[in-house]
Design a protein around this nucleic acid. Structure first.
Lengths: 335, 335
DNA sequence: TTTGTTTTGGCAAGCGCTTTCACGAAACTT
DNA sequence: AAGTTTCGTGAAAGCGCTTGCCAAAACAAA
């Protein structure tokens, strides 16, 4: 295997006996070059195995034809659904996509602001309001996911978490439940708060006192939820008959706790989650939950971002509604 | 919000009253600049909100400090486990990672060869032997995943699919099964073939005739598998008592088919899969399967790639062994 | 003081590419 | 035959940055 020194546009020009500008024109389909010349250039390029250096190209032209998807949470069910939707949408519009998982805050900002991509989709909890100001100052077209954009010019797509919490709770109330438990997420989780707000709202509207409803906190993981629900069920005099969990994993933990104590899910205790992760439909009993339009969020984000790159001024905040997915983990309240 | 024109190193130099080379040195920690000058530069940079243009930097220096993970299959359980493992490993070594999902073959090759990244991890079925030659010629450090590297200088990490198929089949044989069905993947799937080879090997070793064992093909999806198994079970005179599926999704489809006909999984028919995707442990009955060390594959790939970037010559092909995960979908053969 | 040595910072080249502009030849017009 | 337009091509500038090299300044040694 002979390693050949990297060929540049100059080498192609020499071999084809034309200037480098002609090579550039020929290769980029600018229609000012005769077919014969173009053929000659193409042939020379092929012969040399020429591949344009994208750094040079991008430095000069000022655009990368790349969109960046910045995220810190690679895991989780959202991630690949989003990446898939975004990458497809982006490709359709003649752009490329890069997923960038920055190791620290500085790397993150350097990549957003350092002309690496023409626009950014940010799904990132490292980012703060100052960063947003920075991005605005550098006028990098940007779309925020799952995070409201404070201020104009930056668009965002968020889920209607409060309404989802409200709808889910109403569904449980309609099944006759009057003592509802809420399994909250981490303290600082925005969505979890909103879901709880919706929960309270529905409770109050039904003429019940939301302060009397048990809230177990910090339970975004299966095991934590399992332990908490198990001990709650063990010690509570008159336990809740239905549980609304902050997410599906937590709901699954709750179901396992219920089963472990010899109770039946749905029959004895109803459980509901949020997100409709892949597992939820396979778990037995299959989990009743609320599904967010993740793929749609990705597609909308790409559309908006490309419009912004092409000059449209951003600043829209779109709220996407979830959808109730009723399965087998919920049932009528007993008496 | 006032949009300020993008600041360059030149602006910083002017404000700090030094030359641009001094700015560069100060900013990059080259130790040839007095602390006072450095302070002045840093202050000026902060004041102007200066962020270096990575295109310029990379064009000049010839390195991007970025590794590229090229993939076409975003979905699937492998994907995010790999991305997560790789991104962590890469960050630890002072590099960044980009996931690049090319829309077509040309984009793929341009991104690999166009100096966008210092090295490539390729998990890609678009790539063929010619492409590999190209990459070698351009001497881009590259690691292949799930695909043997033909020839020297390119390293690869593959799973030991044949051994896995062999072990899984032996496990089934040890449970007393004598009629085993194989649910094969797509025709052109490398792993599926190898797993089948292992299957045959174990069958023959046990003194049975592998040609008598039913093989259902093209079943890498749940529904296809469901339908095929259902009709097989319906029409077969003396059906197999155990099924080895080419992957977990296919195994799940088979289990659903078994249940839909009123049989019991494990008791009446054993089912086994490959991959140990997340669902498998949650599905009831939980699936017996073979787990591949995906995260480990990613970490090894990064280590190898960085060594290659730093001059070590590649060409190693490492085979990673899977691990039997015994759950509830398999049981002793009846009689 | 002179000479030699080190430190500090600036100049300028150039990474590979696109793009503006000018030029000469060919094709039209008058 | 001369003037005008069209067209293909090339020269050269410059995108933002790093870096080799050199000059100036500062210091140490003689």
């Amino acid at each position: 295997m002979i390693v050949v020194k990297k060929k540049t546009i100059k080498d192609v020009a020499e071999l084809a006996n034309v200037s480098i500008s002609t090579v550039s024109n020929a290769l980029n389909g600018v229609n000012v070059v005769t077919p014969e010349t173009k053929q000659r250039v193409l042939k020379a390029a092929a012969e040399l195995n020429y591949v344009p250096n994208l750094m040079g190209k991008q430095l000069r032209s000022g655009e990368t034809k790349m969109l960046g998807f910045f995220t810190d949470s690679v895991s989780g069910p959202y991630f690949y659904v989003l990446v898939e939707a975004i990458s497809r949408a982006v490709a359709k519009l003649g752009y490329g996509m890069q997923v960038i998982v920055p190791s620290d805050h500085k790397t993150l900002m350097n990549n957003i602001l350092g002309n690496v991509v023409d626009g950014a989709i940010i799904f990132e909890h490292m980012i703060n309001d100052d960063d947003i100001q920075q991005i605005l100052m550098h006028s990098v077209p940007t779309v925020l996911l799952d995070r409201p954009a404070h201020g104009p010019k930056m668009s965002s797509f968020i889920f209607n978490s409060q309404a989802e919490g409200y709808e889910a709770t109403k569904y449980l109330l309609n099944l006759g439940h009057r003592r509802l438990g809420f399994l909250a997420g981490y303290e600082n989780n925005h969505d979890s708060h909103l879901r709880y707000a919706g929960f309270k709202q529905a409770i109050e509207e039904a003429g019940l006192n939301s302060d009397e409803m048990p809230v177990l906190s910090g339970l975004f993981e299966e095991e934590a939820s399992y332990n908490a629900v198990k001990s709650y069920l063990h010690y509570a005099d008159e336990p809740a008959t239905a549980f609304l969990a902050g997410n599906d994993l937590s709901a699954i933990g709750a179901m396992k706790a219920i089963v472990s104590l010899g109770y039946k899910v749905a029959e004895d205790f109803s459980v509901m989650g949020f997100d409709d992760i892949e597992i939820s439909q396979y778990f037995r009993p299959a989990l009743t939950t609320v599904r967010n339009p993740i793929a749609r969020q990705g597609i909308l984000a790409v559309d908006e971002l490309l419009a912004m790159i092409n000059g449209r001024v951003g600043g829209t905040e779109q709220v996407l509604d979830g959808e109730l997915v009723i399965r087998d983990s919920t049932g009528f309240a007993k008496h």
